[in-house]
């Protein structure tokens, strides 16, 4: 129970931190923000790794591998597509020099 309280404490602080951080992102970057933060939500990959790697029966391992595939798609796809988008946001002056 104490663990749960401790984790909830972390949760609450993180939400406040998230609100502070996100409200500073300009509207121009809202799409990359979404895909980038979506890639971060792929952190569930940690749980998938543990499930796929330590499963003690077939069902757990299969569920774990499936979770791992989806989480990896989420992480890899999310970061790459965000990078592709952000690479396009350039200032005109620097573009002309190139």
């Amino acid at each position: 129970m104490e663990t749960v309280i401790f984790l909830t404490f972390i949760l609450v602080l993180s939400i406040f931190l998230g609100c502070e951080l996100i409200s500073k992102v300009p509207s121009t970057l809202h799409t990359p923000l979404m895909s980038g933060s979506n890639a971060i939500s792929g952190i569930t990959i940690v749980g998938a790794l543990i499930a796929a790697g330590t499963g003690n029966n077939h069902e757990t391992i299969i569920l774990g591998i499936l979770a791992l595939v989806f989480a990896t798609v989420n992480v890899v796809g999310g970061y790459l597509v965000t990078d592709r988008m952000l690479a396009m946001f350039i200032k005109k002056d620097t573009k002309k020099k190139q």
Binding site: I10, L11, L17, G18, L21, S37, S41
Partner: peptide, 13 residues
């Protein structure tokens, strides 16, 4: 904890 922190950041966003 890292799942909780990151998940909460995305949730807030």
């Amino acid at each position: 904890k890292v799942l909780i922190v990151s998940g909460a950041l995305v949730g807030a966003s």
